[in-house]
């Protein structure tokens, strides 16, 4: 749910990075954080376990600049990918404006990708959202790994609805900003449409 403040002239939107455990959601946010000018970002918060696995969420606030006199701010969240943190994932999806599904390209993670995507759909439906109607993009991460499945194959499995998709290598940043820009654009376009009605 975007939050539009006519008094402070701000638009605030929430983007959630979803995907199986260790697919690189946190790495996406870390790269964005490291490459963003200090005045355009806030602190990155990671609620993680002692072994650096996401426990609840990562959070990164970004300012994108002004649009028609309104400051646009995006709050990026990741969910914990591990299967047993499902209750937390549901909470983080509340109020979401846009979703990035980060798929792990490795052949051995295909099942985990499918399970996570099903889980995303189910958890969104529980909150009254339909993935097919939300601003939504897919990222094929870990393209540099030897066991990466060809994109066409991956696409057939994790992007059957043919939403905008991007190849990525999150630790070095390939595809990270393309993904973020694409989902942010979709969110703003949706906002524009919402303004019509």
């Amino acid at each position: 749910m975007s939050f539009i403040n006519y008094s402070s002239r701000e638009i605030n939107c929430k983007i959630v990075y979803y995907g199986p455990g260790l697919c690189g959601k946190t790495t996406n946010l870390q790269y964005v954080y490291n490459k963003t000018a200090p005045d355009a970002k806030g602190k990155m918060i990671s609620l993680a376990t002692e072994t650096e696995r996401t426990l609840f969420f990562d959070f990164l606030p970004l300012s994108l600049g002004e649009i028609r006199g309104f400051k646009t701010r995006f709050h990026l969240y990741t969910v914990p990918g591990q299967v047993f943190y499902d209750a937390s994932r549901k909470l983080i999806l509340k109020g979401v404006d846009g979703v990035v599904f980060v798929a792990d390209s490795q052949i051995e993670r295909m099942e985990a990708n499918i399970e996570s995507l099903d889980n995303l759909r189910t958890n969104l439906e529980e909150q009254g959202y339909n993935l097919d109607k939300l601003p939504y993009v897919v990222q094929y991460n870990k393209r540099d790994l030897p066991s990466a499945v060809p994109v066409a194959e991956l696409k057939a499995v994790v992007n059957p609805t043919n939403v905008p998709d991007f190849e990525a290598v999150a630790p070095t940043g390939g595809g990270v900003f393309d993904t973020l820009k694409a989902v942010a654009k979709l969110v703003l376009t949706e906002l524009k449409r919402g303004g019509n009605g």
């Binding site: 539009i4 649009i67 942010a184 703003l188 906002l191 524009k192 919402g194 303004g195």
Partner: peptide, 18 residues
């Protein structure tokens, strides 16, 4: 009526942000 501000956003406005 204030919500109409957003219907006036153009694709160019959005592109300019990026």
């Amino acid at each position: 009526a204030q919500t109409q501000v957003f219907s006036e956003i153009t694709d160019d406005d959005i592109d300019n942000l990026f």
